[in-house]
Write a protein that binds this DNA or RNA. Structure first.
Length: 270
DNA sequence: AATCGCGCCTGACGGC
DNA sequence: TGCCGTCAGGCGCGAT
């Protein structure tokens, strides 16, 4: 599933193809997503110039003069750059076609993704206003984490996946960051010491930035052919249940907690 | 305010 | 071979 590093890579990768380009038209092939694609979207986008492209959490933002196209890839969404128009296939939902023929195509098998037009006042938008700090900025730091977590009883794994606390941490990187920090995922977050909070924040930053550097876990869309990203071979616990821990050799544990899978080493994470 | 768990959705996979 | 149940999970939302 696309997580923050994947969106960051997508954001950077799509810029050369979209930035400054004028949208000549849009096409909706299947409007059924998390929220139906608004019929007004086509008219709103036509003639717009992509001024900037940015990321907030796992959201991708195409910023134009009169508003912003907000895209979320959900579980299975992809955005592909096509050098020119081709016939849409299964699960293709939406195209942005630029005046130089470049087409950006949104495909989503499970339809948890979303595509919507939001106004200029981005901070006021419901989906963005409650998001916590970006994990790779200084606003997300040990003291912030410590302060926010004091009164909370949720387990640390759920806490770091709460987008109101910090934006864009999904299941893969939550598991990996906790392993790197040596913290047992089921500890109530309010019980973590200041030092452990600091360590976890640093682990989150480290995991995310190294994944961005090697190209993400899941996708490399840049040539239009999806590949397994290089970060997959860096995974220490995720989907490694039963396999030996890279540090101590004991079997990686798997549990389902709160409708989520957790992977951890009982010996290295306490 | 915080927490819990549902529902959305398709495809892969395993058992019979 | 085919059918059916289970799992995968982001995240908004309603219930408690």
């Amino acid at each position: 599933m696309p997580e923050l590093p994947e969106i960051e890579i997508l954001c950077a990768g799509i810029k050369p193809y979209a930035l400054g380009n004028v949208i000549s038209k849009c096409a909706v092939y299947n409007n059924s997503l998390r929220w139906p694609i608004s019929p007004e979207l086509i008219g709103l986008l036509q003639g717009q110039t992509i001024k900037t492209i940015s990321r907030r959490g796992k959201y991708l933002l195409f910023n134009c003069d009169t508003g912003c196209l907000l895209i979320h890839l959900g579980m299975t969404g992809t955005l592909r750059v096509l050098p020119h128009f081709t016939m849409p296939g299964k699960h293709d939902h939406f195209d942005i076609i630029f005046n130089n023929q470049i087409t950006v195509r949104f495909n989503d098998v499970r339809r948890f993704g979303s595509v919507q037009w939001i106004g200029l006042n981005l901070q006021k938008h419901k989906l963005l206003s409650d998001l916590g700090p970006e994990p790779l900025t200084n606003n997300f730091n040990g003291l912030y984490f410590y302060t926010k977590s004091r009164t909370r009883k949720v387990i640390v794994k759920q806490f770091i996946m709460d987008h109101k606390i910090v934006a864009g941490i999904g299941n893969i990187y939550a598991n990996e960051a906790l392993f790197l920090a040596g913290i047992q995922p089921k500890i109530p977050v309010g019980q973590l010491s200041k030092n452990r909070c600091r360590r976890l924040v640093e682990s989150i930053k480290s995991i995310l930035s190294s994944s961005i550097i090697v190209g993400g876990t899941m996708l490399d869309f840049r040539d239009g052919n999806e590949r397994v990203g290089a970060f997959t071979k860096h995974l220490r616990v995720y989907k490694r249940n039963g396999e030996p821990c890279h540090i101590c050799g004991s079997a990686i544990k798997y549990e389902r907690i709160g409708m989520r899978s957790i992977y951890y080493c009982e010996n290295c994470q306490r």
